[in-house]
Design a protein around this nucleic acid. Structure first.
Ligand code: ZN
Ligand code: ZN
Ligand code: ZN
Ligand code: ZN
Lengths: 132, 132
DNA sequence: TTGAGTATGTTATGTTATTACATAGATTGC
DNA sequence: GCAATCTATGTAATAACATAACATACTCAA
């Protein structure tokens, strides 16, 4: 359970944008929102995201090439468990959830294969309750 | 359980490349491998892939922007169940698997949220037995 | 045979992500 | 202090992935 280090200037800016967004954002959207804070190039965003992902305070949604602030900051789940997302294709809302049973099931299959997991991606696309 | 229609010329070419590949391929890699069969533009690949995905004979691996031929052709799983992948980051080998228990667990969570799932992505990245 | 639907070809463009190189700031040991 | 080192940042260019827009051709049924 590594502590989250003090964020640098750019990391703070990117994290702030994600925290206050009402849904996942692409790297280039983040860039646009930080132009008036001095951001000029994608790398400023990608480098910050890389660290934020490493610290576990941001998640990447592979199926939509976007990033979202962790919905459960401070919780222990991320260090030992797996994270899943339900993504609404209509309104963009994302629900992050953890399920130890799911985790256990996946990992037991994986261990049976002698596969050494590093990272798991679980994303469900569809319609949220409000948009159904 | 919709039958798979007769594939068109381009769909056949793309499917053949994927079937004979020893791992997942990006769209542009497929394009390169079909240059001498007359392919000139990405869209020829993407359009074929779109159909092949729809027919369920090819899967897209979101976390590596690549495509792979279904490992279980003809099986019924795809129409009602969910597909998961273990992807080796060293050698690129992909193992496709189905697990009804996993499926059930995920869908019960999702139903509890009144979320209407359309598609699920489950990808585990790590090292395969041979590369561990 | 004409109209609708599907498949294809081609060019251009949009979107996402990384490489390469330069500069600046912080930290450590001397 | 001052060099060595490490981390963070700035900038330009390019690579990698994906789609839009438009034209043409090929079914196939009415
Ligand atoms: Zn989280
Ligand atoms: Zn919604
Ligand atoms: Zn399959
Ligand atoms: Zn391997």
């Amino acid at each position: 359970m590594n502590a989250i280090p003090q964020l640098t200037k750019n990391q703070t800016l990117v994290f702030d944008v994600l925290s206050h967004a009402d849904g996942p954002l692409s790297a280039y959207t983040i860039l646009d929102r930080l132009r008036d804070r001095g951001f000029r190039a994608p790398l400023q965003v990608y480098r910050a995201l890389e660290k934020l992902l490493e610290y576990g305070v941001v998640h990447r949604l592979e199926s939509i090439n976007s990033f979202v602030a962790c919905a459960h900051p401070g919780e222990d789940c991320h260090s030992h468990g797996l994270v899943a997302f339900a993504i609404c294709d209509k309104c963009g809302q994302v629900t992050e959830f953890h399920d130890h049973e799911l985790d256990h099931r996946l990992m037991s299959w994986v261990r049976g294969q002698k596969f050494k997991p590093e990272k798991a991606t679980i994303e469900i696309r569809g319609r949220c309750a409000a948009c159904a």
